[in-house]
Nucleic acid binder design. Sequence first.
DNA 1: AGATAATATCTAAATATCAGATAGATTAGC
DNA 2: GCTAATCTATCTGATATTTAGATATTATCT
Lengths: 298, 298
Amino acid sequence: MSSLDQLQAFVAAADEGSFSAAARRLRKAQSAVSTAVINLEIDVGVELFDRTGRTPSLTAAGTALLRSARSVLKSNQEFLAHASSVSEGVETQLCIAVEQGMFLHSLTDILLELGERFPFVEVEILDPGINDVPSLLKEGRADIGMMLEQEDHPQGFHFRGVGYSRMVPVCGRDHPLAGRSRVSHGDLRHHRQLMMRSRTQGAVGDPRDQKGAKVWFSESPYVILELLLSGLGWAVLPKTVVSERLRTGDLVRLRYGFQETDVMQGVDVVWTERRALGSAGQWLLNKLLALKPGLWSD
Amino acid sequence: MSSLDQLQAFVAAADEGSFSAAARRLRKAQSAVSTAVINLEIDVGVELFDRTGRTPSLTAAGTALLRSARSVLKSNQEFLAHASSVSEGVETQLCIAVEQGMFLHSLTDILLELGERFPFVEVEILDPGINDVPSLLKEGRADIGMMLEQEDHPQGFHFRGVGYSRMVPVCGRDHPLAGRSRVSHGDLRHHRQLMMRSRTQGAVGDPRDQKGAKVWFSESPYVILELLLSGLGWAVLPKTVVSERLRTGDLVRLRYGFQETDVMQGVDVVWTERRALGSAGQWLLNKLLALKPGLWSD
DNA sequence: AGATAATATCTAAATATCAGATAGATTAGC
DNA sequence: GCTAATCTATCTGATATTTAGATATTATCT
């Protein structure tokens, strides 16, 4: 049975060009390396070194097999590194739930660094609809979440605001409200409003936001965006979701007659202590909590 | 020191869901598997199995590490397969020299099959100029060659004809000879002929073929092809080289007034016994010798 | 030719591995 | 609820492997 020690001796001898030197590098006796190589040669039935000179030189077969041998050792080192990572408390999987519309470019950078620092962690990213992050955490489906702040913070979670998302009233280019310089409550009431509402909780976010008489709901701001584009109504959406469409003119921003400034809704990082975070989760959480507050409002 | 046996026990136990079953599969005692797994767990500092039930079940860490462990074993199996291949006389490298213009699609198919049958052989393909294959074989640079038949077979080589290449007289579209229905020796003598000649041997192939008074030489039929396209002269080239250009009309075929049929020059497979072929070379040689004779003349 | 350094091989000791037996624990069937 | 079957952990003695040290031989350099 060939062993990793034999392969190690083989590779070290090939690298050093000498069994004695290989033994010194491996802190073993010269005879150990010599016999290891010989036994490997016997096991696989191939002469790896040419012993006619003072120092052994690789045969053609040895040169070819050296690559395969290195590959085995590298594989084993990766296994040990993986094990070491797990042993030091790094979780094997990490699931992040980022509410739709809250995923920014700066998150990609953080995840990139996460992948480099914790190469053995499998990362999964969910993009649930509005206000569904808490249920994913409760189920244990996700480890860390990011979501728009809600009025009623569910119990058993940690929340920490990391910024504000500018909520912008918009409608499609061809919508009747698109031409108005200012709109009143009455104007809004006469047209269909599209609102975000959670699938699971079923609760309307903030009743005060419900200004339209006729309201349709979706859990996804992107679905609402599509509906807006076909002129189906008006809505209040995070600026990050609509900014590109405002730029191209597909969407038009509404100006309230009764309110001058945009509503700024908080963005929360959410986690739970029930599911303990591993090292990678801890690191990610700290990174998220250190995000600049203005990221979502630009 | 973790070993392959431990990893094997780990994987087998994970597959079977039981240490006893794993032991049966590995034809070892149950205690061997049990201690191997425990020692592995101690070595890497990770609990791989949850032992509460009657049979052990993988922990999350175990599930993650299982993939890495499998990877190590697979790597090792590949090493053993590679070694077995070398041990059974399969060479590690195989160099084939195919004279320019003699490389056909059917050769690709053969090489494809070669790669499947002998996955550990590194294949190199040279495309030397006319009549340079023997010197590559003599230097030991190539193992098997394929070339146009020469009058003076160099000594110390094995030659075997495997077909005929149709030699076609051609000139460029705008060449003065292009318009003639038939050309005489005299016509040819008044225009520059481009001939293939070996770099190393320096000998002109067959003096009888030299019909032009002014002759330029190149070792490569493709260089000659380029010169023909710019109207620099006329030449006799293998049909496989010029057929595409004849089809598009960039080249024009010459009709001899003094000779009706095309010259059919033999195509030889060449090898030498000095450099013994391995199993892959043997196989390839047999495949080449079995090629259909008509392949090059179409 | 002599000095140096490297390899192969032998031996004894340390080490690791293995099979068998046994005890404790869990599950399936009645 | 009880019994039988099956599984795991652990102990023990035997076996196999690995190792270091010593030594003979060979190749290389001066």
